[in-house]
Design a protein around this nucleic acid. Structure first.
Lengths: 190, 190, 190, 190
DNA sequence: TGTTAAGCGAGACGGTACGTCGTGTCTTGGT
DNA sequence: ACCAAGACACGACGTACCGTCTCGCTTAACA
């Protein structure tokens, strides 16, 4: 998204902006990422093609803007009484997001595109939703953990790999994963 | 790849097959996955377009065939004297494959495509290179580990997430990752 | 129109060629030159857009090819007994062509485009239909007239100007025009 | 051009009007008629797009207004001592206008557009510059010629056709054309 | 002097044609 | 039956211009 620059001229239509973002949301669910086209987005939104290109350069930018807010919301977990419960909750949220949510589908599509498109890589790096959410949880449990340690990756990684490699999310034992993570946390803390 | 079926007729040209696979290898490095087209592959290979479609239905199939052999080779690690050394070697090989190798670029592209294309999902599921390689290593270290446990995902996951989320592979402390993995392995074994 | 070059490959579809030329003929009558678009031609012809561009670079080239044959036919007049009758017949044919015929509409459109497009100018210069038809008539009446004289222009010009400047073709007195032309022809011959 | 009607309100900016007309003049020479766009005119004139549309509906109207004054001036010839000299002068002026002048380029463009646009046809019919100029000359030479005769068309036509069909204006023998015209004028007068 | 109505530059809006590219299929002649 | 070549119908790409529509700001004639 680009900020309006000049003083003069007709102001940007927020209605058009919303129509585009909703169109992307709906089309992602209906036809999937592969069949998502700029032309299709514009037509579904009832918007001129140029209007889309004026504010977003690529499909990735639109998806990012359409998904990022939902993503943060879905990945926020309420505090629990024990670390184990909290980690389990988080992993469940993570799996729910990645595997079942519309926003998660958008995120996976972006991550995919980032593998061969530096612009997209930079885009998702600018707001690393997953790491941020994990970091928030870990800060509550273990505020003193060494900065830059690998806790975030060891928390997210296994579930992330499970989902990305296409296995059934329902088969993933998040409780066991959480137990191992918390156990290891304690044993190295001392 | 498809087996020739009929009795009569001209046999399949192995020369054409190799030309296509090499063309894919080169083009993946030169122009990247996004700009990889069936048309481009055929032209680079000096092969008719129909010849490509005759033996492979999709780009994904060609890439899979072009990468899978290299992948297995790159992910095979020699036995080491200690589990820690072996796991470290494996993680280094994993990072090298995913982040630096041509075959790894192909693998990441396939994984990306699999997120929104069931056919590709099934394709890579049919020969899960990463899990297989990790399994081979773990079998040497801990042959008796419970089947279907999460060791494979806990081994691969963190590094996998690190690479896929676009961070610098050189910054990843594989030794620390290996140390944590081995430590945890021992503590739960008892 | 371009000649096929290579030996191999699927041959050009004459059916597609005819469909395009007929589509242009019909569209010129239905929507006029201004609303004639490459997209429209292709769709009306039931032909891919690329197929049109493959064989013709511009609208002008298609119109030229679609009209030139009709034009020559419409401008050919049968020999008459007297020069006056023949010239009158020719002027009637000329007016009929320019003002009423579909091919004439195409010709006028080309002539118009030629005023600001050198490529079109060259195109119509390559086969100057009007001058050629007048020349054929004059050759029968006055075979010995000096080469390069202005007889052709003095024959065509007045009627041409009448039509092009938008006056009613039915009001043009071709007989009077012919009479003046033939009279002048005789008087300078001696 | 439209007259301002209401009582109050800001009066029309003559500066904007002139800027538009000059922009059209310059753009006609620089980029030609085909590449002349309303957008381009407005930008070159440093004028809002709406301001152009407010006073002129079409490109044709602007060109007409930008060219008509120049055209009349260029086509006015000073009286000569003999009819032959006067006709020759006129034909030279005609050729100069049509073939070399900026206003002539505008006129030819309008004439072209008129072939497939009734609105433009009506526009140029409303002020038939060429016929009017020829009529003025003929009135001096032969004031008694029968009204509605074809003298105007026989005078203008040949040169007009020569230019419009794209031949080199310098090759046109206006003197010979004038001689034939005057000769014929005399011979039918008696 | 303040109101009011129209003109002004700027630029976003929904459309649509442009010419190019890649898709997957087809149709040649040749191996 | 396979092959290289390449034309085919199709449709998305990103760009340009169309004519319209807001914006905030003059600029005068009227009150």
């Amino acid at each position: 998204m680009i900020e309006a620059k000049g003083r003069g001229g007709r102001p940007r239509s927020e209605q058009a902006r919303d129509a585009v973002l909703h169109a992307v949301d709906n089309l992602l669910l209906e036809v999937g990422y592969a069949a998502l086209t700029m032309k299709g987005i514009a037509e579904r939104a009832g918007v001129g093609r140029q209007t889309v290109y004026r504010w977003w350069s690529t499909k990735a930018e639109i998806i990012f803007e359409a998904c990022v807010d939902d993503a943060e919301e879905e990945l926020a977990v309420a505090p629990s009484r024990t670390p184990l419960a909290e980690i389990t909750s988080y992993l469940d949220a993570l799996v729910g997001f990645l595997a079942y949510s519309a926003a998660g589908a958008g995120y996976r599509a972006l991550l995919a595109a980032a593998q061969h498109d530096p612009a997209v890589k930079q885009l998702i790096a600018s707001k690393d939703i997953l790491s941020a959410s994990a970091s928030a949880v870990l800060d509550r449990i273990d505020p003193a953990r060494p900065g830059g340690d690998l806790a975030i990756d060891r928390l997210i990684g296994p579930a992330f790999f499970w989902i990305m490699s296409g296995r059934d999310p329902a088969q993933l034992d998040t409780h066991e994963l959480a137990r191992r993570f918390v156990h290891d946390l304690g044993s190295t803390e001392s």
